[in-house]
Design a protein around this nucleic acid. Structure first.
Lengths: 323, 323
DNA sequence: CTGTTAGCGCTTTCAG
DNA sequence: CTGAAAGCGCTAACAG
């Protein structure tokens, strides 16, 4: 490993001057800078982040903690974050809370112990992370006041509900995956609120109530809305098995816009999060905090986008299948 | 930040002794160790990884580079790796090659510059990473001799082909996603080899040839095999649209065992990789290399597992739909 | 404009 | 068994 010292010796100046020349802190004649840079390149000098970290007390590393790395959004967030981060010379260290609050705080601790300069965390369902000694951005849901930035889950719910209402549906069933998830609650709240009294809605939760959902459709509901694309795919299976055709007999919507949404048939009408935007803002928040500025815009909400595909259409009149 | 020095002062010994006591390098009386540990805990001492890294020349951080963090396997690999890694006190820094060879080598460089002790890389399609100055484990495909550990893609192909052959299918169409992918080539090679001459096979590639696939099915193929679950979902869409029922008219298989495989209808027969095993082995290889030992078992192959669900069945005799 | 000195927190000889 | 000293690579403070 070629160090700043060797360059100094080679050029015949002091290490400090080399440092100054290389980091552009001024105070060095431009011809000296040139010479130093030349030698540095020639020797293949790479600054030691470890040395710098020790001196500056900053590692240039951010920690990313997600509830479950298996989360369908993780890849997209991680990708955007990693791109945005290394544009600023920052690295991303991953931590997995493994679907459990204890592990979440352990993951947080491990990262802090490693000396991360900041934290980006998508909280575990129902387990808000305790405050950490480094700047932290929380990516959660707008209804949580401690949130730093999030997609507008409720707004997305309204958006897609408006689409369904606009098609003329009067009876809809909403299926959530897990009651504990605030994100899903918000999505559903947005839908319900949008429908208000103009549309009759029934909310069901989880795999267990899938059969109730079929019953509800048999009883005349013309649209099924879910809180995730995967759930929608499940529903589609059951619907098909029970002889209902989508969207002819019943319209179906998802949420998230995963790759499977366009791969399935009929392609799924769903809501897309602007993940890059969310990731970028989260990063801006921590970096700003790290630089001692206050966070720009706490609790910011990034709008969702409605993606209309083939799984939704106007309701068709249907004869009752129950007496 | 409480340092080793403060503990030393508090206890009335030298920093060196504290270090020895805390890192268990022996050479310290056990009662002294107890006292030091007590004080350390009381003061809330956390060792500075930066200081240690500088001194030891090791950061305790591994770099993980994937071709595209959006890759469906990324979450599972990242998760397993992160769990296995921090069991050993190692951290995982992510790098994204963004689907392009140039970015791949840049990502590698960035991580090396950051001082990672080792690298885990899933190579970009058609772009094998140049050798790096730190121990590296390549997670690729067994047919590549530079590979360190991989799922047995060809073996998985054989496995699922055997299942199809066993059901009695005589004419099958195989659909790959991207010709450039060696992984997909291997999967298909495994299938083709297993069928040998006993089953008539036709290999198609990409979204463009989906219509040919339908034609082939119309012409009498009774099974469609794909190199990924997502592709299988696509195929299912087209098949259904063209009036074919799965598995009645035609059997369908995927590869990867993504969540969507069981969510779709009919649930997909597919091949599951033992991702934890692969991740663990990859980690063992780099850590072993880091510790100066040679890699245990280069080029290891982790067996795949056949997951039989409802998308495959015996072929049904069918009348030709073409004259 | 440049150099010297000092020290970030830790470990590792080498003496005591 | 314990301590003193040196140094990992870098930068900030203060001379010159």
């Amino acid at each position: 490993m070629v160090s700043i010292k060797e360059i100094a010796k080679e050029v015949g100046v002091s290490p400090a001057t080399v440092s100054n020349a290389l980091t552009g802190k001024g105070r060095v004649s431009s011809q000296m800078i040139d010479r130093i840079q030349a030698v540095a390149k020639e020797l293949g000098y790479r600054p030691s982040l470890a040395g710098r970290a020790l001196q500056r007390g900053q590692t240039g590393i951010l920690g990313l903690v997600m509830p479950d790395l298996t989360n369908p959004l993780f890849p997209r967030i991680a990708q955007q974050l990693s791109i945005a981060a290394d544009a600023q010379g920052l690295g991303i260290l991953i931590g997995d809370s493994r679907g459990n609050p204890d592990e979440q705080s352990q993951a947080l601790h491990r990262l802090v112990d490693r000396g991360v300069d900041g934290l980006l965390v998508v909280p575990q369902m129902g387990a808000f992370p305790e405050p950490q000694p480094v700047p932290t951005a929380i990516i959660h849901t707008a209804s949580d006041p401690r949130n730093s930035v999030s997609g507008d889950h409720a707004g997305g719910g309204s958006l897609i509900a408006r689409h369904i209402a606009g098609l003329g549906h009067k009876r809809v069933v909403i299926l959530g995956g897990d009651r504990v998830s605030e994100v899903q609650q918000d999505r559903i709240a947005g839908m319900v609120q949008e429908f208000a009294t103009s549309v009759e809605t029934r909310v069901l939760w989880g795999e267990d109530e899938l059969s109730d959902l079929i019953t509800a459709v048999s009883d005349g509901a013309t649209a099924v809305m879910t809180t995730s694309d995967l759930l929608a795919l499940r529903v589609l299976s059951h619907l098909t098995r029970s002889g209902f055709s989508v969207p002819r007999d019943v319209s179906l919507t998802g949420y998230d816009d995963l790759p499977l949404a366009w791969a399935m048939h009929p392609a799924l009408t769903t809501i897309a999060q602007d993940v890059p935007q969310i990731a970028t803002r989260a990063l801006e928040i921590v970096t700003s905090l790290i630089n001692g500025n206050s966070a720009p815009s706490q609790g910011e909400m990034v709008p969702m986008r409605l993606v209309i595909r083939q799984s939704t259409s106007k309701p068709n009149p249907r004869q009752e299948s129950n007496p």
